[in-house]
Design a protein around this nucleic acid. Structure first.
Lengths: 67, 67
DNA sequence: TCTTTTTGTAAAGTATACTTTACTTTTATG
DNA sequence: CATAAAAGTAAAGTATACTTTACAAAAAGA
């Protein structure tokens, strides 16, 4: 699964730290998600999508091997 | 956070077991999510949304206390 | 270049998602 | 009513999301 968090951050010009604060998680959590080190919970995904004014589907996309 | 999985299952007339099979998780996982016992990963939420032909946002909604 | 900000990384700990097995209760169907 | 199917529940174990602290590397700005 891949995501476009980094791109959305660039659009809104906010740092990982700022996004983390808005989503009430640690900066390392945002960093890890952005780098694909782990997949967030649906709760966090919904929050991030809302912060960016987009949808979970636009932010996170299933890849073939996710089947 | 609440979800409408039970309603979507009713629409499509499939059991928890059938949904579990399609999503490649255990039946208990579907049951627990449906009952709000835990929040699924974004991967699983995306899979379930796709199975139902809907979106994560339509299936899972943040509640006030999720802030 | 010097300094600051941002990002990446790592390790140890905690919380929670998810599995498996198994049993009970409810709902559907003959 | 009897039987079967579906749903609910529970406990023990595993996997992984997330936190905290801390430091290094990279990027940005003066």
């Amino acid at each position: 699964m891949k995501n476009t968090i980094k791109v959305e951050r660039a659009k809104q010009n906010i740092t990982q730290g700022e996004l983390a604060e808005k989503a009430n998680v640690s900066r390392q959590t945002i960093n890890a998600i952005e780098l694909g080190k782990f997949i967030p919970s649906t709760l966090l995904a919904l929050k991030i999508a809302r912060i960016f004014g987009t949808t979970v589907e636009q932010l996170f996309t299933l890849e073939p091997h996710d089947e």
